[in-house]
Simulated assay, not measured.
Amino acid sequence: MNKILLALLIVSGLTGPLAASDLFDRSNLAAWCIVPFDARNRSSEERAEMVAKLGIHRIAYDWRAKHVPEFEREIVAYQKHGIEFFAFWGVQDDALRLFEKYKLHPQLWIMMKGTGETQEARIKSAAKGLQPILAKAKAIGSRVGIYNHGGWGGEPVNMVAVCEYLKKNRGADNIGIVCNLHHGHTHLDRLPKALEAMKPWLLCFNLNGMDIDGEAKGRKILPLGVGTQDVKVLRQIRASSYSGPIGILNHTQEDAEGPLLDNLDGLQWLMPQLDEQAPGAKPKYRTWRERKK
Rank of each mutant, 00 (worst) to 15 (best):
80 K>I: 12
210 M>A: 03
46 E>G: 15
195 L>K: 04
258 G>Y: 05
256 A>G: 05
65 A>L: 10
103 K>N: 15
237 I>F: 12
147 Y>K: 11
177 I>V: 11
248 I>V: 15
177 I>L: 11
222 L>F: 09
233 V>G: 02
29 L>I: 14
124 K>V: 10
186 T>V: 10
293 K>Y: 10
91 V>H: 15
53 K>P: 02
246 I>L: 02
107 Q>W: 11
187 H>Q: 04
33 C>M: 01
155 E>M: 07
135 A>C: 05
133 I>L: 08
169 N>I: 04
206 N>Y: 15
120 E>K: 03
10 I>S: 15
62 D>K: 00
24 F>Y: 05
161 A>P: 03
182 H>K: 05
75 I>C: 08
44 S>V: 02
115 T>V: 09
49 E>P: 06
289 R>K: 12
209 G>A: 02
167 K>I: 07
20 A>Y: 02
24 F>V: 10
91 V>F: 11
26 R>W: 01
9 L>E: 11
241 S>R: 00
24 F>D: 05
217 K>E: 02
62 D>V: 00
76 V>E: 14
234 L>Y: 10
32 W>K: 06
1 M>L: 13
208 N>C: 10
90 G>E: 05
256 A>V: 00
146 I>Y: 01
239 A>F: 12
262 D>P: 07
94 D>M: 09
267 L>F: 11
175 I>M: 03
214 G>A: 09
3 K>Q: 14
78 Y>F: 13
33 C>A: 02
232 K>H: 12
17 P>E: 06
63 W>R: 08
132 P>I: 06
240 S>T: 14
80 K>P: 06
1 M>P: 13
69 P>R: 11
118 T>Q: 06
3 K>V: 11
214 G>N: 08
143 R>F: 12
77 A>N: 08
75 I>Q: 02
110 I>G: 01
15 T>R: 09
223 P>D: 12
223 P>T: 14
224 L>F: 13
224 L>M: 03
49 E>R: 08
3 K>E: 03
134 L>M: 05
265 D>Y: 12
45 E>Q: 10
156 P>Q: 13
183 H>I: 15
199 K>S: 11
12 S>W: 07
125 S>M: 11
17 P>F: 05
259 P>W: 01
258 G>N: 04
167 K>P: 08
3 K>S: 03
288 W>V: 09
198 M>C: 07
53 K>F: 06
115 T>N: 10
251 H>C: 00
90 G>S: 00
37 F>R: 10
10 I>E: 12
96 L>W: 06
34 I>W: 00
10 I>W: 09
14 L>R: 14
74 E>M: 07
183 H>D: 03
140 I>Y: 08
40 R>N: 07
1 M>R: 12
280 G>L: 05
69 P>D: 14
100 E>F: 06
68 V>L: 12
179 C>Y: 09
166 L>G: 01
195 L>W: 06
24 F>C: 04
107 Q>A: 04
232 K>I: 13
249 L>G: 04
111 M>N: 09
28 N>K: 10
51 V>E: 11
166 L>N: 02
